[in-house]
Design a protein around this nucleic acid. Structure first.
Lengths: 217, 217
DNA sequence: TAGATTGTTAATCGATTAACAATC
DNA sequence: TAGATTGTTAATCGATTAACAATC
């Protein structure tokens, strides 16, 4: 799909898409049918021009003189983001962060189904978080293969992150969502998305000490 | 401070600083004394040229023919990021995510001291997470004022985020670290740093479905 | 039809990369 | 000294903004 263009969509554009999707979801809940790029600009803080440019990378979803149909654009963006599918997911590290992710209903609603948590601590193996069992991390590889797991989450301490990434890689996982404060090394065909909480907090700290550099949004 | 320049440091530069800091910390732990921009480039994935440009926004930390002293650069970056201070912090929302943050030793080591968690659920008010008490959210405003709290974290469900932000704002908090999937509105003098986990996950999902757009790092 | 707003091209702005003199 | 590597300027590249014809 998307063979009609050779040039990549830039990461800066891609990272704005979820925000458009979120605001359109809100508008939809509020029963609003149509929105212009100008109005979306007021909501999101991106310029109207930028919004039109961004969307036109994927198609002409709008209509001159009218704007965009909220529901249609929401659905289109959902499809572009791959939210029209279900992804089998596992989480390694059953601490608070792992539990937070497995409990968050928003992810399940968006199609990210957590099949199991994994840990190496015998005290927690066998327990259930809601209805999701915590398994021994030694069973991780087999579980991935037997259950067509596509996405692996890492919520372990830093020192185990690379080992888990290796197990993920060896067993054919397609994408890794990494919360450990380390950059893992995997082969080029595996998607890695990092959430480095420290980097976010330290950025906050920087701005707290250098208010003159801070700009909203 | 930093009165010697009128032009702001751009956000793209600022967001790279924590990563430099993290790698330098690793090098320090490994007992490595000196590093060149070329070597830092191999570690971080940023170009050597970019690294030298970034650092020179803040000072000439290197030495021709030698490179950078790891410990000195680590300390300088720590200072630039404001990690040489202690910040009184509170967390509203004592669920898994709030607990994960309050338990993470890395934040406390970096100077972010969690004084209290807050919740509105009577069942958890009065409990302790490690040695941090969960208080009634009704006491939030007074607590902030009495304890010189500078940073407020929001780990509540989306629908409460703005209300908490309002309490933070009214009681003089300086920065908000927001994990709720909503963009909160506050006055311009308050720093807001968002962690939108859904946006990260949806970006991962996009790349899973559009591998041709994926580029490492 | 007249007004509104898109899709898209062109202009501008900013960030990254390349190059190299300075110097340790 | 010779080699290495910085700090910094200039060149390039890419992203954002502005403008407007097309058209609903």
């Amino acid at each position: 799909m998307d063979l009609d263009k050779d040039n990549k969509i830039s990461i800066t554009v891609i990272r704005r898409l979820p925000k458009y999707h979120r605001y359109l979801g809100e508008l939809l809940r509020r029963g609003i049918n149509r929105i212009s790029s100008k109005e979306l600009s007021d909501l999101t803080g991106f310029t109207a021009s930028q919004i039109r440019q961004d969307l036109n990378n994927f198609g002409g979803f709008g209509q001159q003189g009218y704007g965009y149909n909220v529901e249609e654009l929401y659905n289109q963006l959902g499809k572009i983001l791959g939210l029209n599918k279900v992804y089998n997911t596992v989480i390694v590290g059953s601490g608070n962060l792992g539990q937070a992710i497995s409990n968050y209903s928003g992810f399940e609603e968006a199609g990210f189904k957590v099949l199991s948590l994994f840990d190496k601590n015998p005290k927690v193996i066998g327990l259930k978080i809601r209805d999701i069992e915590i398994r021994d991390v030694d069973e991780l590889g087999d579980f991935i293969k037997e259950n067509d797991v596509e996405i692996g989450v890492i919520t372990t301490p830093r020192e185990y992150a690379q080992d888990i990434a290796d197990v993920y890689m060896e067993n054919g996982i397609k994408a890794i969502w990494n919360f450990a404060p380390a950059d893992i090394k995997v082969s080029d065909d595996i998607i890695v998305e990092n959430v480095h909480l420290s980097e976010s907090l330290f950025t906050l700290s920087y701005f707290l000490n250098n208010k003159e550099d801070y700009v909203k949004n």
